[in-house]
Design a protein around this nucleic acid. Sequence first.
DNA 1: AATACTTATCGCAATATTGATATAATAGTT
DNA 2: AACTATTATATCAATATTGCGATAAGTATT
Lengths: 114, 114
Amino acid sequence: MMSKKPTSDGMEILDRMIGDDTEVREMYEQAKVNVHVAQLIYDARTEAGLSQTALARMIGTTQSVISRLEDADYEGHSLSMLSRVAQALDREVKIDLVPIVPSLEDASFPSPSV
Amino acid sequence: MMSKKPTSDGMEILDRMIGDDTEVREMYEQAKVNVHVAQLIYDARTEAGLSQTALARMIGTTQSVISRLEDADYEGHSLSMLSRVAQALDREVKIDLVPIVPSLEDASFPSPSV
DNA sequence: AATACTTATCGCAATATTGATATAATAGTT
DNA sequence: AACTATTATATCAATATTGCGATAAGTATT
């Protein structure tokens, strides 16, 4: 089961690097989304059995663009590009802004060990 | 219960206008996402009890920018902007590319009336 | 109706993303 | 090793988004 893009474990690394620092939170959340989207595109493409070049042609762009989209460090993700990719791969873009529950870890009792 | 942005029922209207035409599909899906995101931002802001000006200041921009984001016709949504808004409103950006099941409505039996 | 508050819209400069080509690097095959 | 296919990176012009001020328009309150 190899679903992760082999060159990047960005999510996990990031998650462990940052605590509750309000200062870095902004950049962190941003980076988290970027890494996630890059992974989404990579997964969708590989599951469809397509090369970057093949996908690029389907949405009317070039291979380097797709490679850039799948780069975990890429910060320029747009919803229009995500839509184009999704449609070519017969997928639907689902987006939501889910409320963050104020503090589950601040409770005085230890969190249940699943 | 008034959660919809009063000036726009874009989603419903769009849904009824388009059938299976592969030609228009591209623009349609794009527009659908745009309308949805605009609504997400509007909902999140109003539920937080903030004015456009107030939210704008929280994320370091101006009121006209927020108004533009909430415009159903706006096509320039970026994930970075969505992240900024989400964070200011204590929300998390959730994104997914869900596979579209080929044809549930093409079945020879009528769809169950819920 | 005047005031205060909120939102919509326009225009334009600043900035960022995209498109595209070329090239390097990696992997797999024969 | 040579060949092929795939992916990563760099650069730059073209395009699109953002920032921002000004202003119009809509709501509510007094």
